[in-house]
Design a protein around this nucleic acid. Structure first.
Lengths: 338, 338
DNA sequence: CTGAAAGCGCTAACAA
DNA sequence: TTGTTAGCGCTTTCAG
């Protein structure tokens, strides 16, 4: 392995100059910088990140923690973050908490603290105060994606507004019997997104002077199968069948479409269906939805972090950063038949 | 930050002893080991991985390279690898090549060579000889998942056998008009899996004395939408409609099921459909399939690597390691109606 | 603008 | 079994 001394010798300068020339290039004359760069390239020199980190305290590596990876949303966030980091010359070290409580503890007690990362991005994770405190104690910037995390800079979409928008779309089309498939309690524990979306739905109804019937809400588990089952119950009722369903995720919305079909109902003729996410299958199913952009969220998280990692964090944004969302109307929503 | 010297002082031993006690614990008396461990715990000491790596040459970190993350199969492999690595006390640094050629070069020229990783796992990636050579030159073990990579230890499922098994299942049920939806040329570039699966299909037919009709094969892009379109073509033919479809992925198989339904055909009454993967939606759609176990593949890749990373690699397995697969029969396949 | 030299925190000979 | 000590390769004052 060829090291900084080799380059210094080859370029006829000191190792200090090589270091300076290769990192930022401040306080080095253009001429020598060029010479050093040429030597480095010629010799195929690559800095040893360990030595560099040890000496400088910068790791050029950030930790990303996700609950699981095996899910469209999380995978997209990570992918976005990875690409953004790569542009900045950073590595991404991935931790996923699928392994349960033990894995979680081990991540926080050993891995994140090994001084491997400059900062941490926590995706859809409700960190305990203890966990947050630990990170803060180490002076490691932390940004959250999609939770609300006490005292932590977090990127969130306004779930209430998202749900309101979706519901308003249905109301504007003329629907008055609008059911909602939301998350069950298990999901509320880790991020109270289901509750927020339900509130948004109810707020939109209320604003339109519609009273939400209690049995027009059904909890499910955010999967296609869960949405299917919930929709079957909703649509199979002999009386007062809803003419529209707002599902809190596209996967549940797709389940609803399939449930409607299996009951012989036509979408959107008999039931309109709208979801949230703009999942990769949404287009195929012609599903109207409120898109959120997970990849972009990952990228943005990185930008925020880079900001914070700079010596003098200028223009720090507020603690809560609102991410965009957008109504996408496809074929699954239409005016109700009279 | 509290360091090894602090622990040494607290435990009344030298830093060398602390180092030994905390890593493996060889050549240390049980008594002092206990004492050191107690001190470390009490002080909240965590080794600086940089210093440790710099001194030892071991990074305790492995690089995983995937073409994209945003896909069930890759995400599952990574998840499996991550969990296995965590058990071994290793970190996982993720590289994805979604960014195109430039990103790819940058990964290989800078990131992987920064001496950050002890080894590399390449998932479904056709590495160039140059790229492989580079890694070998650095003495970095490399294991592939799901390609065949020249000169590299690779985990593969026998795609030919997988396809044969699926097709044989249909033949055994009595089908003779069996269509195949495979991958198009674009996919063959990166891993010639589509070709292998097609060969397996043809081999099974040939063994049963069935001649494969040319127009019973349709290429698609491994997505649900692609499978849907291909199946529409296959099933919409006025004459000699196939009674069964073998799709090279579950997503295409699901597309086929939906296409059949839209044509008013009943699955499996009018058409049987079988896929490959055991995708998370397979169960929901009652899809018969040949399961492969991506998570397990990720774990296995780690085991192989750990083996190789040990001082004296015992019992090295062959270059090609066959991964298991399994026929799972659900409701989408049945005897053809006579 | 450039060089000399002191660490960064740990591991691994080597000695004891 | 334990301690001493010389690096690992780089960054960063501090001089010049």
């Amino acid at each position: 392995m060829i090291n900084i001394a080799d380059v210094a010798r080859h370029a006829g300068v000191s190792t200090a100059t090589v270091s300076r020339a290769l990192s930022g290039g401040h306080h080095v004359s253009p001429a020598t910088r060029l010479r050093v760069e040429a030597s480095a390239a010629q010799l195929g020199y690559v800095v040893s990140s360990n030595a560099s980190s040890l000496a400088s305290g910068r790791m050029k590596n950030i930790g990303v923690v996700v609950p699981f990876l095996n899910h469209w949303f999380f995978a997209s966030v990570v992918e976005g973050a990875q690409q953004a980091l790569q542009r900045h010359g950073y590595d991404l070290t991935l931790y996923n908490l699928t392994g349960g409580l033990e894995a979680r503890r081990s991540v926080f007690e050993h891995f994140l603290l090994r001084q491997r990362v400059d900062a941490v991005i926590a995706v859809s994770l409700e960190l305990s105060e203890n966990e947050v405190a630990r990170l803060h104690a180490l002076d490691k910037p932390l940004v959250g994606v999609g939770g609300p995390l006490a005292g932590v800079r977090t990127l969130t979409v306004d779930d209430l507004a998202v749900a309101r928008l979706a519901t308003e779309h249905l109301i504007a089309l003329g629907h008055t019997r609008i059911a909602h498939i939301g998350g069950d309690k298990a999901f509320d524990l880790d991020f109270n997104l289901p509750t927020n979306r339900r509130f948004g739905y109810e707020a939109a109804l209320a604003a339109a002077g519609i009273v939400a019937r209690r049995d027009d809400f059904r909890p499910a588990d955010f999967t296609t199968a869960g949405g299917y089952q919930a929709a079957k119950q909703l649509l199979g009722r002999p009386h007062e069948r809803p003419t529209a369903i707002f599902a809190a995720s596209d996967e549940m919305a797709i389940g609803s479409i399939l449930a409607a079909r299996d009951l012989g109902l036509v979408v959107p003729g008999d039931v309109s269906v709208i979801g949230v996410d703009d999942h990769e299958l949404a287009d195929f199913f012609g599903l109207s939805t409120v898109a959120q952009f997970p990849q972009q969220q990952g990228e943005k998280a990185v930008e925020v972090l880079m900001q914070e990692l700079r010596p003098h964090p200028e223009s720090r944004t507020g603690l809560n950063i609102n991410m965009p969302f957008e109504l996408i109307v496809r074929g699954s929503t239409a005016r109700p038949m009279v």
